[in-house]
Every structure is written in structure tokens, then in C-alpha cells.
Amino acid sequence: MAQTSDVKAMKLNKKKLRFSTVILYIILIAGTLVCLVPLYWMLRSSLMSNAEIFVFPPKFFPSTWRWSNYVKTFQNFEALKYFTNTMKILVPCVIGTVLTSSMAGYALGRLQFPGKKLWFALTIGAMILPGHVVLIPLYLTYSAIGATNTYTPFYLAAWCGGGASNVFLMRQFMRTLPKDYDESAMIDGANRLQIFLRILVPLCAPIMITVAIFSFMFYWNDFQGPLIYLRSDNKFTLALGILSLRGAYASKWNYIMAASLVMVVPAVVLFAIGQRYFIEGIVLTGVKG
């Protein structure tokens, strides 16, 4: 008697479990829609004619998929020019960030020297320091040396450590590597530059990829920096270029959405490829920070 009721309870439990799992999946699928429908809306709008876009109630599917909108957008928008400009900032900045932040990470994570604690504390401080305070003086400084409307402000920031949070990531990672590597290499007569280049850099490849992806995303998305430093259209990045497109074609939401999608796709593709490194990096800053 007792046994049967036990079995019954277990069956009931299992049913309950299944039921709650189904509900869980329904919520997750609803969440998936919430995440993706806006992006579909971007795509759908980019493929419509301008007349079709301004119809009420709005249609969920375009009547014809006008891929020609993209050709027109590229012609009006000069996407290639803005893309090239973005790359002119991005490539040297990503290299500079990875190089100088790993160097600083090596010093702060593995070497002993007087003042280390202070410099590390200042680096942490720079991580929480709100950027708006230094925006104006930085602009005035660059303006005084004639570096506005050039890419110098971006290059300088990237080649001087490339952001405190990247230095922090590098330092945390370098600390986890055993000290024996350095010591045995020292005994073999290697100097610190050789240790850094031949031993640590290969071992740090994962964190370097993480930092590279972070800084790629940063410069790809960066808006306030280019907005302040760049004045002429032939220096503009994609983020600024899209806004000038909007200025010129205020109500052509199909072209604006097409240009926006041009900016979204590379970021999402890079995320899809480097997802593991990306998410590990976020977790590392958040959990160890």
C-alpha cells in the first residue's frame, strides 16, 4: 500500500517536473523571440520600399525582398570609405592594446619592483573612474597639439596600456602561470624580454585573443570618441557615417536600417567565432574583479 503511493507520488513528481520544464522552455523561446525579433525588424525594414515602410498597420514581411536597397545604400552611404576609416583606427589600436596591456600585465603580475602596489591601485582606480571627467581636458590637450581631426587620440590611448580593464585582465591571467617557467629560463640565461616573448606570450594566447576581441568591439562601436575628435566627413567612422546618412535621408528608414545592419553583421560574426574567449573575458572581469 505504502509502496504504491510512493510510486504514485514519484510519477506525479515526474509529471510535475515535465510540466515545469515545458513552461521553462516556453519562457526561453519567448525570450529568444524578444532578442531576435528586433533584429529581424531591422532586416525586414531594410528590404522594403520606402512606400511599404510607411504603411499602417506595419507588415511583418516585405512584399518583395529588395536586396537592391543594399546596393543603393552602399552608393549613397559610401560604406566602403567609412569601413576603411574604421579599420584605420581599429587595426593599429587593437595591436597596441594587446601589446602594451600584456607588457603591463607582465610587470604587474609577475615582477617585483618598488611602487608596484601604487601603480596597480591607480590602474584599478582608472577602471571605475567615469570617463566623462577626462573628456574635455583630453580634447583640449589634443586640440592644443593639433591632433584633433586625426586618429592620434585613438592611437595614443591604445598604445598607452589600452584601457585599465584590459591591463587588469592580463595581470590576472599572468599571475596564474607558474613562476618556475621564468626562473628556469633565467637560469638558462634568458633575459626578461626573451621570457616575455618566448614563454609568456604563447601561454597568454587565450587572454590575448580575449583582449583583442574586446578592443575590436570597443573601436567598432565607439561613438563618443569619434564624435568629439573627428570633424571632416572623409575621416568619419561607420558609427558617425550612419548618422550623417540619417541627416541626409531623414525618412528613408529602409536605407538607415540597411546601413545599421551592415554595422551589426561583422560584430555578431566576430562574437560567434570568438564567443568562448569573449564570454570567459566577461566572466573573468566580473568574478575576479
Binding site: 533584429l39 531591422m42 550612419i242 540619417r246 562574437f271
Partner: peptide, 22 residues
């Protein structure tokens, strides 16, 4: 699911602003 839920955070700020405006 984790990947899908992360995608909106990858959308560049300017593109995301224009999309939401629309």
C-alpha cells in the same frame, strides 16, 4: 540560449539606437 540572449549586447550602440528609434 546563452548565445541568443547575448546577441542584443553585441549590436553596436548607434545601430541599436537607430533600430529602437524606428
Amino acid at each position: 540560449f546563452r548565445t541568443i540572449f547575448y546577441v542584443p549586447s553585441i549590436v553596436p550602440a548607434v545601430a541599436s539606437c537607430l533600430l529602437w528609434m524606428w
